[in-house]
């Protein structure tokens, strides 16, 4: 991945953690991607602990209420931002049980606010249908960073099914934010030759060739050969 693309990706992640538009971080435009990543992790950790006591108490409340009531509180009282924070403090099984009781669009909202280092338990218990609906909502909102973080937590079979949810532009724009680049091979193997043609065409039309090249670095020889064939067709 180019340094510029890596820097843009890290600035996007940092803006997300701070809850600001990326333009608010213009003073960091010359920072190295590695420093931005370390800064993002430091701030996420700081915010995570800042009100940890209040969240611990919220979790204690959740433990005393029926699951259905907890889901209702998450949706109608906590809202997506605080639910995302609280979900990160739940035991993985609790998080998975809660996620199953929440509608896909609310889960998409939660995902936008979640600490992306802790999204695993939220994602892993969901059915492919729910993941698909939440994923489509995130695509509609162009939440490329969030989608990129999810890729590493979706099992391979579900990932193959989910590829159909995303168009060529989405795949290209999510690419730089995928924390598990070994998954690109699974994604490409799930694409038909026709969809590979679309991907190559979209990369040219939307000036996203750099994003496509960054994914190629992680492809097996078989998938790289398929992509080469699409590029010359």
């Amino acid at each position: 991945m180019s340094r510029d693309l890596a820097r843009d990706a890290e600035l996007g992640r940092l803006a997300r953690v701070l809850g600001v538009e990326v333009e608010a971080l213009d003073v960091l435009a010359d920072a190295e991607p590695e420093d931005l990543r370390a800064l993002t992790q430091s701030i996420a950790e700081h915010l995570h602990h800042r009100h940890a006591g209040a969240f611990d108490r919220a979790i204690a409340v959740a433990g005393k209420l029926p699951s259905a009531m907890t889901a209702k509180l998450a949706q109608h009282a906590m809202g997506p931002a605080l639910s995302a924070r609280a979900a990160g403090l739940l035991e993985p099984k609790q998080a998975a049980d809660l996620a199953k009781r929440l509608p896909p669009l609310f889960l998409a909202d939660v995902a936008v606010h979640a600490d992306l280092r802790q999204v695993g338990p939220l994602v892993e218990g969901l059915s492919p249908d729910v993941m698909g609906e939440a994923g489509a909502a995130l695509r509609e909102r162009e939440e490329w960073i969030v989608l990129g973080a999810f890729v590493g937590h979706v099992d391979e079979d579900a990932l193959v099914e989910l590829v159909d949810v995303f168009d060529a532009e989405a795949l290209l724009r999510v690419g730089p934010f995928v924390d598990a680049p070994e998954r690109f091979d699974t994604i490409f193997s799930a694409l038909s030759d026709e969809r590979l043609d679309d991907l190559v065409g979209a990369a040219a039309d939307l000036d996203l060739g750099t994003q496509l090249d960054a994914m190629v670095e992680h492809l097996s020889d078989d998938q790289a050969a398929r992509l080469d064939a699409a590029r010359v067709s």
Binding site: V17, L18, L28, I43, H51
Partner: peptide, 17 residues
């Protein structure tokens, strides 16, 4: 700028709670 944005995020989070 970084410290100001972090402080604003803290305050926003407290209000949301």
């Amino acid at each position: 700028t970084v410290h100001t944005l972090v402080h604003q995020a803290e305050r926003r989070q407290a209000a949301e709670l």
